[in-house]
Computed example of a mutant assay.
Amino acid sequence: MSSTEQIVIAPDSARPAPSSGLVSDITRWVCGAFLTLCGWTLRGDFPGIDKAVLIAAPHTSNWDGVYMLATAGFYRVKLRWMGKKSLTQGPFGGVVKWLGCVPIDRSAANDVVREMTDAFASEQRMILAIPPEGTRSATREWKTGFYHIARAADVPLILSVLDYGTKTISLAAIIRPKDDYESDLKIIQSYYAHAQGRHAGKFQITR
């Protein structure tokens, strides 16, 4: 069994992805101003990766999604996220898709990992954000979906750390998992060991 590949991202700068035009540049400026006004500091350059699962943690508040989307705008990256298929139907379905929703069928017989694997295969670029806790409530166990999706789609994990204790949002590392979930999870969670969520008591990882 080969060891897990991990690349630590240096925290001394926060370079974005290349510009895709005036709109992306304006979005970057607006999102950067918003985050600065809210007291946040960004750390880590966005890696030159077209496809990845981005771990978004801690996740204890609806504000986490707001700050994560603003961070994506600052980095000139369009985040994708999983949502119920019904959200992408009806009169506003197109808008929800435009905002980044990847529709999934949550019926009991459905294979979400396979759906996301197919979605990755059909896209040239896709950064899929997943909160591994699976809930904003307190939990000590992370869901395994983020890991199995990355493995099945053969894409790396980008570890993003939203730390309310230091008011920093960090792109901390790139991990390419192998085939030992328990071992890989220890490596992944080590980057979150000292992170504090908006509601500190709700973020508890197994250490």
Rank of each mutant, 00 (worst) to 15 (best):
I49P: 05
V96P: 09
G201L: 10
D180E: 11
L69N: 14
I187D: 04
E182D: 13
L87D: 04
C38Y: 13
Q6C: 15
A172N: 08
R43D: 11
V30E: 13
G197E: 00
R28F: 14
G73F: 04
T168L: 03
G93P: 11
P131N: 03
M1V: 15
D118I: 04
K186Q: 10
G65F: 09
I127A: 07
A150R: 03
L171N: 01
G145E: 06
D105P: 07
T4C: 07
A14L: 08
L35W: 01
V102Y: 02
Y191C: 05
R151Y: 09
N110G: 12
R43H: 11
Q124H: 12
Q189I: 02
K167C: 09
T88Q: 08
P132K: 03
G32S: 14
E182L: 02
V77P: 04
P91L: 02
D50H: 09
V53H: 01
A138Q: 12
D45A: 02
A57L: 00
N62A: 02
V155H: 03
G100W: 04
Y191T: 08
V102M: 12
E115K: 10
I175K: 02
H194D: 15
A138S: 14
A57K: 00
N62K: 05
S137F: 14
R28L: 10
P156S: 09
K85N: 14
R114S: 13
V66F: 10
T4F: 05
Q124M: 10
A129D: 08
L42H: 09
P132M: 07
R106W: 05
I104V: 07
V96M: 06
L171P: 00
A200K: 13
A14K: 05
P132F: 03
G39L: 07
D45K: 03
K167M: 04
Q196H: 10
S122T: 13
S86D: 09
I127E: 00
D64N: 08
A10V: 09
P156D: 03
E123Y: 00
A10E: 13
A10W: 08
S190M: 06
R198Q: 14
W63V: 00
V161A: 01
S137G: 14
F146T: 00
Y67A: 08
G39R: 05
A121L: 02
V8T: 13
K97A: 15
G44L: 02
S61F: 05
Q189L: 09
L22T: 15
S2H: 14
T166L: 08
Y164P: 02
V112L: 01
K178F: 13
Y192H: 01
Y147E: 03
P47C: 06
I158E: 05
Y67W: 13
T60H: 02
D111N: 12
L159P: 05
D154I: 15
R43K: 15
S183I: 05
F34A: 14
F46P: 05
S183C: 14
Q189T: 06
Y147R: 07
G39P: 01
F46S: 00
P132Q: 04
S61G: 06
I26D: 11
W29K: 15
M82T: 12
R151N: 15
S19L: 11
C101P: 11
R125I: 00
G201M: 14
